[in-house]
Design a protein around this nucleic acid. Structure first.
Length: 920
DNA sequence: AAACGTTCCTAC
DNA sequence: TCAGGTAGGAACGTTT
């Protein structure tokens, strides 16, 4: 239950075998099969002396465990600090601390210290304290402001900062103000640069308060009261550091020997901990050797709680009774540590270190010690961010174990639990909890799968069934307490389940190559890995934009949230669907990455957009500008190339290279990296357009997004016209071509020919011909043929998909009940079967008969209408009530027939099926 | 009855 | 300031 990310109710699982049965008596049962064959294949690593195992509190056992858990010892070169430290960083944050006196002799008072956590090639953990990097932002300099004015401005601003930050204790709020030459990224500007002021403040939070002062307006002698647009004042400090030092998420960093100082007193539990200046860091581009992964330690864990019957476990009441852990080195396919901490005795499990304790307190503290000793770099699990981690912490709080939540890499630093109260009218007040474990990346498989895959259920079991082909009965939450209250054998059974729930996330991580894909995404976009699950899409585009802008001397303004009046803009064209059943091949022509190509072809960018005012003033020659179909004017690339087109070109070029390298690659790990990279590059290119249209985002520019869609609309209409004008009998072809449908970047063409092969040839000819009429890199491609093709309406169709003329690839279905997740399984099965009969068997009467039979079958046994469970809130109108009643009755009949496929609350049943049911 | 608005989920 | 976009179908509720 706790693992179930799906809030929709499902029928209860079949009854579990009696807990009284001992596993040994049914060693061939599914659960043992599953575990013995899969989880613990590699037993040699963990064969333990049974004596030691049982004596969990013995010093000997503890010592043995610690030595097995700990990281490899440091070599002499590290100890003597005679070598450079090279490590792959996984996490970057900052703290406020006293300025480093040796490294920064001229500074005093509190300062932001960047912390970089990572792992060396040998598997040593690293904590690097980076000093001297200061928070800053920009404003544009007022015309006529000289050095004296700036110095006066500095004083005024400092005074205002003092007022606003009354309890802050820094010697100086505004460290300095530098006059720099920059240019705003917004709008085409002829001049090469303008004076800007770089305002360097003492602490990162002061960027926000200083921005507030400048936003509201400030009185400056000789200039009156002025308010300023700030630039790059919303860039998170750690990201600012990464951008300025050219560090991207998950890359390798080197600190040369002699450039770092071992910390006087270790603040962290890391093996290598040192201080250095921000300017001494060498950031390696993730290529060649530096595209490899360090051997990070990945901990996968799961907890079991003894919830009261019928209640979801609450940390204030219900104890944690088991914690299962698996630790795997990145790149290896078997965990090197497997253990389970249990409350009360537990029979041994082959290949697993069973650690029984007599109090819950000891269980929790054992886990804390385990974390500290193993020192995992990445913590994974299923729903750990919203359940397991907060639960452990709140439980320890309830039990008054103050020393428990020291789980991060910083000594004596308690894990912070942030309560984010999310209040919405619909959900009421919903609390969500956010746990930060310093120096360790949390990677919740539930979040990752929900982000990357569309599934009908996100329970661990069904996700595992989907990706790992492992169907496994879950232990029902109602019997967890019974198993716990039984004996060592029943608790063993529970432990086996707990281990499974720790094991499956690890398998998912490997199977879906999340590490490779996410590290590559972090490298491509430049954000820390932790952002990828905890933040949205836009931060990734912003990160790339800031980096590119910095190279070009451009700065990015903080646009004010313009409210809701900004409105929306027109999107893509969906061509009228000529609904019907097509028994001749339909060729599909698609624009390859339409929106990125449009942005590149027409040089659409913030910095190429010409304001309407400048259009009149600048008198730009027509050969230098494009006027978009939505009426905006952009500079052509011969005058100045846009940043967005440049980012896109790089992403696309890099993707081509990654794909080419992928073909050459032999090593499976290298292949995984490259495949992850090409995927990351594709996704990144596609999200640039969305970023410009995100009205609540960081830098919306609807002139760009509406221009993109307006070109797109023009292009699809142009394509339709060209196809229908050229491929005619008058033009020498056998038939007149007809565009029967099209959506955004595609057109479906009936060329009139009878064979797939002929349609393919004409499709290729059309794609080539039409591509020639567009500017580079816009390209129309022939992709596939549908034959036969059932077009129901816009965004709803099905057909057999052919990519070669010999045999069809598959049945492809779009928008129909079969692909929607709000229909019950019976409806999906029914519609799927019908489509199969229509498309593959070409038996339409058979499909009709099939529907009739199914409904009739459902109606065999009479139903009463007493159970109104499907739809809530019946209306008073007689007819509506009738429909509802039919709906409910049908649902109930389905339930009697087969509970697994019957509708649940919230499921839809198509109207046609209700009508059919009523009619019979 | 028809028209319109909301919710959900999908296509692109 | 947690948060990529618009178009569109189907079911269902409410208003006219």
């Amino acid at each position: 239950m706790s693992k179930n990310g799906n809030t929709r109710k499902r029928p209860p699982p079949p009854p579990q075998p009696s807990p009284a049965q001992t596993p040994k008596h049914h060693a061939a049962s599914q659960e043992d099969d599953f575990l013995d064959e899969d989880v613990f294949l590699d037993e040699t690593l963990l064969l333990e002396d049974e004596e030691i195992l049982r004596d969990s509190e013995g010093r000997q056992a503890l010592a043995a465990r610690l030595s097995k858990w700990s990281r490899p010892p440091l070599s002499d070169a590290y100890v003597s600090q005679s070598r450079s430290i090279l490590f792959q960083q996984l996490e970057i944050d900052y703290v406020i601390g006293e300025s480093h006196k040796e490294l920064l002799p001229n500074s005093a008072g509190p300062a932001a210290i960047i912390r970089i956590f990572g792992v060396t090639r040998e598997g040593h953990s690293v904590c690097c304290h980076v000093h001297g990097f200061e928070p800053y932002f920009y404003i544009s300099c007022l015309p006529g402001m000289g050095p004296d004015d700036i110095s006066r401005f500095h004083q005024i601003l400092e005074a205002r900062m003092k007022e606003v930050n009354r309890n802050g204790k820094v010697p100086k709020y505004i460290r300095r103000i530098e006059l720099v030459e920059k240019k705003s990224i917004m709008y085409y500007q002829q001049q090469t640069s303008q004076p800007f002021l770089k305002i360097v403040v003492a602490l990162p939070t002061m960027v926000t308060s200083c921005r507030g002062i400048l936003d509201r307006g400030i009185q400056i002698d000789g200039f009156g009261t002025k308010s300023f647009i700030t630039y790059e004042s919303n860039v998170l400090f750690a990201l600012r550091f990464m951008i300025d030092r050219n560090i991207v998420g998950g890359n390798w960093i080197e600190v040369p020997a002699g450039k770092y100082k071992k910390t006087a007193k270790n603040l962290s539990y890391c093996q290598l901990e040192f201080d250095c200046l921000y300017s001494e860091l060498i950031s390696h581009t993730p290529e060649g050797e530096f595209s490899k992964m360090a051997p990070f330690r990945v901990l996968s864990f799961d907890i079991e709680c003894a919830g009261r019957k019928g209640h979801f476990p609450e940390p204030t009441h219900d104890p944690v009774i088991q914690v299962a852990n698996l630790v795997t080195l990145q790149g290896e396919n078997q965990p090197f540590i497997r253990n389970v901490m249990t409350l009360n005795s537990c029979s041994s499990i082959v290949g697993v270190d069973v650690m029984p304790f007599d109090t819950e307190r000891k269980v929790l503290l054992a886990w804390r010690d385990f974390i500290r000793e193993v020192d995992p770099d990445i913590i994974i699990g299923y729903n750990i961010c919203k359940f397991d981690l907060p639960y452990l912490i709140e439980r320890a709080e309830t039990l008054g174990i103050a020393e428990f939540p020291i789980l991060g890499r910083i000594r004596n630093s308690r894990v912070r639990i942030k309560d984010t109260t999310f209040s919405s009218r619909q959900m009421g007040t919903r609390e969500s909890k956010e746990v930060t474990v310093e120096g360790r990346v949390q990677f919740d498989l539930l979040q990752a799968v929900q982000r990357d895959y569309k599934l009908s259920s996100y329970s661990l079991n069904s996700v595992s069934a989907h990706f790992l082909s492992k169907q496994k009965e879950d232990v029902h939450h109602s019997i967890i307490s019974d198993l716990q209250n039984g004996n060592a054998e029943t608790r063993r059974r529970l432990a086996v389940y707990c281990l499974k729930d720790a094991y499956l996330p690890q398998r998912l991580l490997d199977k879906l190559m999340f590490i490779y894909n996410y590290v590559e995404m972090a490298r491509v976009t430049g954000v820390p890995i932790s952002f990828l699950l905890s933040r949205g899409q836009s931060i990734k585009v912003l990160s790339q934009l800031l980096r590119k802008a910095k190279q070009k001397g451009l700065v990015i303004p903080n646009v004010k949230h313009a409210g809701s009046e900004q409105g929306t803009y027109e999107g893509a064209t969906v061509l009228e669907a000529r609904a019907g059943f097509y028994e001749k091949p339909i060729a599909t022509l698609d624009f390859a990455s339409l929106y990125p190509s449009i942005m590149m072809a027409y040089n659409l960018c913030y910095c190429t957009l010409v304001t309407p005012e400048d259009v009149r003033k600048l008198n730009l020659p027509p050969e230098c500008v494009n006027k978009t179909p939505s009426g905006e004017t952009f500079i052509k690339s011969n005058l100045q190339k846009g940043i967005l087109p440049e980012i896109l070109e790089e992403l696309i070029t890099a993707r081509k290279r990654a794909k080419a390298d992928l073909k050459e690659a032999k090593d499976p790990l290298e292949k995984a990296v490259l495949d992850g990279r090409q995927l990351a590059l594709k996704i990144s290119a596609n999200s640039v357009y969305g970023f410009t249209g995100a009205t609540v985002g960081q830098l919306p520019c609807l002139e760009i997004s509406s221009s993109v869609t307006s070109y797109g609309r023009q292009m699809i209409e142009h394509t339709k016209k060209l196809v229908e004008d050229k491929f005619t009998m008058l033009g020498g072809y056998e038939h007149n071509a007809e565009v029967i449908y099209g959506d955004t970047d595609s057109v479906m063409v009936q060329f009139g020919v009878d064979t797939v092969e002929a349609a393919m040839n004409l499709g290729r000819e059309a794609a080539e011909y039409i591509s020639g009429t567009f500017i580079k890199p816009i390209k129309l491609e022939f992709e596939k043929v549908y034959y036969p093709y059932l077009l129901i309406s816009k965004k709803r169709y099905a057909g057999l998909l052919w990519t070669n003329p010999d045999k069809f690839d598959k049945m492809d279905t779009k928008g129909i009940e079969t692909v929607r997740r709000d229909n019950c399984l019976l409806v999906k099965n029914l519609v799927n079967e019908c489509l199969h009969k229509i498309l593959i068997d070409q038996d339409i009467p058979g499909a009709v008969q099939y529907v009739k039979n199914t409904i009739a079958d459902l109606l065999m046994n009479r139903m009463d209408l007493s159970l109104l469970v499907i739809t809530k809130g019946l209306t008073k109108t007689g007819d509506d009530y009738e429909v509802k009643a039919a709906h409910v009755e049908l649902a109930e009949r389905m339930r009697k027939r087969d509970a697994a496929t019957a509708p649940n609350v919230g499921d839809r049943v198509p109207y046609v099926i209700i009508k059919a049911a009523k009619g019979l």
